Deep mutational scan, measured.
Amino acid sequence: GATAVSEWTEYKTADGKTLYYNNRTLESTWEKPQELK
């Protein structure tokens, strides 16, 4: 079967924080998503 690919993209901001963006739900979060833990 196909492996579930994470929908989350990780961005590094200018101040060194990490922003997570979900390509499916168009949601963005500063918290690390469950799927990435």
Rank of each mutant, 00 (worst) to 15 (best):
Asn23Gln: 11
Lys17Trp: 04
Lys17His: 08
Gln34Asp: 15
Lys32Glu: 09
Thr3Gly: 12
Thr13Glu: 04
Ala2His: 11
Gln34Ser: 11
Thr29Trp: 05
Thr3Ile: 12
Tyr11Asp: 02
Thr3Ser: 15
Glu10Leu: 05
Trp30Ser: 12
Gly16Leu: 00
Glu27Tyr: 02
Asn22His: 03
Glu10Ser: 06
Ser28Ile: 15
Arg24Asn: 10
Tyr11Phe: 14
Ser28Met: 15
Pro33Ala: 01
Trp30Gln: 09
Trp30Pro: 08
Ala14Tyr: 04
Thr29Gln: 11
Leu36Tyr: 10
Asn22Lys: 00
Arg24Thr: 12
Gly16Val: 00
Glu31Trp: 04
Leu36Arg: 06
Glu10Asp: 02
Glu7Trp: 05
Asn23His: 12
Glu35Pro: 04
Asn23Ala: 08
Thr13Trp: 06
Lys37Asn: 14
Thr18Arg: 03
Leu19Val: 11
Tyr21Leu: 08
Asp15Ala: 05
Glu7Thr: 05
Ser28Pro: 02
Gly16Trp: 00
Thr25Glu: 02
Thr9Ile: 14
Tyr11Lys: 09
Thr13Gln: 10
Tyr20Asn: 02
Thr25Ile: 02
Ser6Arg: 07
Ser28Asp: 03
Ala4Gln: 11
Ala4Asp: 12
Lys32Trp: 03
Thr25Leu: 03
Thr3Trp: 06
Asn22Asp: 03
Glu7Pro: 05
Ala2Arg: 11
Pro33Asp: 01
Glu31Leu: 06
Ser6Asp: 10
Tyr20Leu: 00
Val5Gly: 10
Ala4Ile: 12
Thr3Asp: 12
Thr13Val: 04
Lys12Ala: 08
Thr18Gly: 01
Glu31Cys: 13
Lys37Met: 15
Glu35Asn: 10
Glu10Lys: 03
Gly16Glu: 01
Lys37Ile: 15
Glu27Ile: 05
Leu36Asn: 07
Gly16Ala: 01
Ala14Pro: 13
Glu10Trp: 08
Lys37Gly: 14
Glu7Tyr: 07
Ala4His: 12
Ser6Met: 10
Asn23Met: 09
Thr18Phe: 06
Trp8Leu: 01
Ala4Phe: 09
Ser6Ile: 08
Lys17Tyr: 05
Ser28Trp: 15
Leu36Ala: 07
Glu31His: 07
Gln34Glu: 15
Tyr11Thr: 07
Ala2Lys: 12
Tyr11Gln: 07
Ser28Val: 15
Lys32Ile: 10
Val5Gln: 11
Val5Ser: 13
Asn23Leu: 09
Ala2Phe: 12
Thr9Ala: 06
Thr25His: 01
Gly1Lys: 14
Thr25Gly: 01
Leu26Ser: 10
Thr29Gly: 03
Leu26Arg: 13
Leu36Val: 08
Gln34Thr: 14
Thr25Gln: 01
Asp15Val: 02
Tyr20Gln: 02
Leu26Phe: 13
Glu27Trp: 00
Thr3Tyr: 06
Thr29Lys: 06
Lys17Phe: 04
Tyr20Gly: 02
Thr18His: 04
Thr3Ala: 13
Leu36Trp: 06
Ser6Glu: 10
Gly1Phe: 12
Tyr11Trp: 08
Pro33Ser: 01
Thr18Val: 12
Lys12Trp: 08
Val5Phe: 13
Tyr20Val: 00
Asn22Thr: 00
Ser6Phe: 08
Leu26Gln: 15
Thr29Phe: 10
Asp15Phe: 04
Ala4Trp: 07
Gly1Leu: 13
Trp8Gly: 00
Thr9Gly: 04
Leu36Glu: 08
Ala2Ile: 14
Thr25Ala: 01
Lys32Ala: 08
Ala4Arg: 12
Gly1Met: 13
Lys17Pro: 00
Asn22Ser: 01
Trp30Leu: 09
Lys12His: 11
Tyr21Asp: 03
Glu27Phe: 02
Ala14Arg: 08
Tyr21Asn: 02
Glu31Pro: 02
Lys17Ala: 05
Asn22Gln: 01
Glu35Ser: 09
Trp8Val: 01
Lys32Asp: 04
Asn23Tyr: 07
Ser28Asn: 05
Arg24Phe: 13
